[in-house]
């Protein structure tokens, strides 16, 4: 019997083992190694390095480039998170009525997500530099230090709104028709029905979406890297690009690793606190 139980346990463990193995190899072990590197002055190439304690953290706080990168990342995150969620919510609620061709509209809205970020950045680069000046008489936002972040954020809003719509749409279909009917009979207008009936029931979807796009935004690397490579100057350098450059361009692995860990703490704190606040406001049906 004991032998049977042992075999049973091994069988169960073998279900987790492959995932566990790959996870340790790719995520867990490098993560722990990274914590070790963050407290050294390693340049990433030489054999030896010195333990320097929290000196990297001190430099990081004093570095004006850090502040610039954090500011750009937060600005980008606010625009995309608000933009994607407002737009997706508005379109989902709009489509939840008698709209001609709504299935077609929903499919088209999802289409941008199938493009890669490289393609999205390329197409929007063309729009900004060819169409904007010729057809609208506007300069490309990607060449302006103040408009470059909103310009890049617009690419993300274009590509991601369809995905957020799928999540909101799943939520809105769980709103019972009788509730809206009851509100209408009680004399509520469309706006009141939305705020008092539909939106509270969409709250779980709202929490999911806000958390997802906060995370995407704070970790953003691809769009600014592909579209402007952090430029003009350093006007669109995000924290992720800042870290990447310290590893692969500036050869400051210890410093970059400390920045990466601060980045992780920033992501965990901001998304964690926001999720908790939003979850508390959710109502149960």
């Amino acid at each position: 019997m004991k032998k049977y139980k042992r075999r049973q346990q091994i069988a169960w463990f073998s279900f987790l083992a492959p995932a566990m193995f790959i996870f340790c190899l790719v995520v867990a072990v490098p993560f722990l190694q990274g914590i070790g590197i963050a407290f050294t002055d390693w340049n990433g190439l030489s054999k030896d390095s010195n333990f320097i304690g929290l000196t990297n953290l001190k430099y990081l706080v004093e570095d004006s480039q850090t502040r610039n990168a954090v500011k750009n990342t937060l600005w980008y995150t606010v625009i995309t998170c608000v933009g994607v969620n407002l737009l997706a919510l508005a379109i989902t609620v709009g489509l939840d009525s008698k709209v001609w061709g709504k299935r077609f509209l929903r499919s088209v809205m999802f289409l941008p997500i199938i493009t890669s970020l490289v393609i999205a950045a390329f197409v929007w680069g063309r729009i900004y530099s060819d169409i904007f000046p010729v057809n609208f008489g506007l300069a490309s936002p990607l060449t302006s230090t103040t408009l470059v972040i909103p310009g890049i954020a617009l690419m993300c809003i274009w590509r991601d709104t369809g995905l957020a719509m799928v999540i909101y749409n799943a939520g809105i279909q769980s709103v019972p028709e009788e509730l809206k009917e009851a509100a209408r009979i009680d004399g509520a207008n469309a706006v009141q029905t939305f705020w008092n009936v539909t939106f509270p029931l969409l709250a779980p979807a709202f929490t999911t979406c806000v958390t997802l796009w906060l995370g995407y935004g704070l970790k953003i690397f691809d769009y600014p890297s592909v579209a402007t490579n952090g430029g003009p100057g350093k006007a669109s350098e995000t924290v992720a690009i800042f870290v990447y450059n310290h590893f692969f361009a500036n050869n400051r692995a210890g410093y970059g690793q400390m920045a990466a860990i601060v980045m992780l703490i920033m992501v965990v704190l901001i998304t964690g606190i926001t999720t908790r606040l939003l979850r508390r406001r959710e109502v149960q049906l």
């Binding site: 072990v29 993560f31 990433g44 924290v239 990466a260 992780l264």
Partner: peptide
């Protein structure tokens, strides 16, 4: 927790490995 982990945090040690 790994969903939240930025790739940057493990990128360099992983590359070296």
């Amino acid at each position: 927790a790994a969903i939240m982990l930025p790739f940057q945090t493990v990128m360099f040690p992983l590359y070296k490995n």
